[in-house]
Amino acid sequence: MLMKTIQQHDLTHLVIRFFCITGLGFGAVCLLLFTLHLSPITIAKSMGSGALSNWIRISHMLSIWTPLLLCSSGLLFTFRAGLWNIGIEGQMIIGAICTTAVLRLPQAENSHALFPALAMAAGLCGGGIWGMCAGILKNRGGVNEIFGGLGLNFVAQGIILWLIFGPWKRAGIASMSGTNLLPHALWLTSPAGWRVAPVALVLSCLAFLLTALLLGNTRFGLRLTAVGKNSKASRLFGIKPELIGLTAMMLGGGLAGLAGGLQVTGVYHRLIPAISSGYGYLGLLIVMLAGYRAAAIPCIALFFACLAAGSIQLPIMLQIDSSLSGVIQGACVLSALLVHGFQTKRRNT
């Protein structure tokens, strides 16, 4: 009985919070648009139709949702262990590089079935190792994971630029448009009229479910929570916080690397300098908005993907800069922090 009332109370609490956050976030953005003499309704309609009006657009939106879901799942591990994995962008880039490296092997074209799977695995490992680098810097060197991660992001960016303009450049011209297209046989196939590879969708959903399961129902998940909440106390229970943190970084990096690999094989079919498209950073915002819990992540990622996909239309249809989607996303996260702050303040007084 008591349990039930607590749950009901929690639910109303969540609903109130949801309406406060959306009201505050959207209200602020609408106010901004009104002062610029723009109509929020026209913009919302244009963004909605840009993301959802037909199956091609929906599937394009889902192709953004896929990496966002993967990155957010990976970040759940690191946040649970109390780590800020800002290096996620670099992990995505390195994953994409490793995948491309495997697919560029001369043997790749002849044994089609094996190599795409191998390439995905390479992306997973590459991202995982890059994540571990930041973890090792933290454990061994005492370098805060935020700054180690940032440094590694810049390094990854340097490597991808060097590859695209150096060893992997297109015959004759090297440009920001990336490497040569991969042979058609190595692409992740998608049915006619689809912009997203079903394999990528299935993989990211599986990764998310596995993450939720691992975090919620296993001893490992419990250990992560213990380290994140109080690493000193967890040591008393025989847990090694360094090792757990390193594993979390590896898992988070691996999922980001897989996302990078899927961008190569499923979306761009080549390596481009902006292969990560900022989806790693967007993942950080998604997990923050979801309150660092798994449950709300697919929906929030879907909302963010709709914004990102819908905003592509804005410059063409309404001559509005596409960065409006980022403004909405940022406003939502900030208002979530604000609402959460007020709620804790009220509870304490």
Binding site: M288, G326, V327, G330, L334
Partner: peptide, 13 residues
């Protein structure tokens, strides 16, 4: 972190 991205996109917008 949230402000970083909000400010960046607000500047571009």
């Amino acid at each position: 972190f949230a402000l970083t991205f909000l400010c960046r996109d607000l500047a571009y917008f």
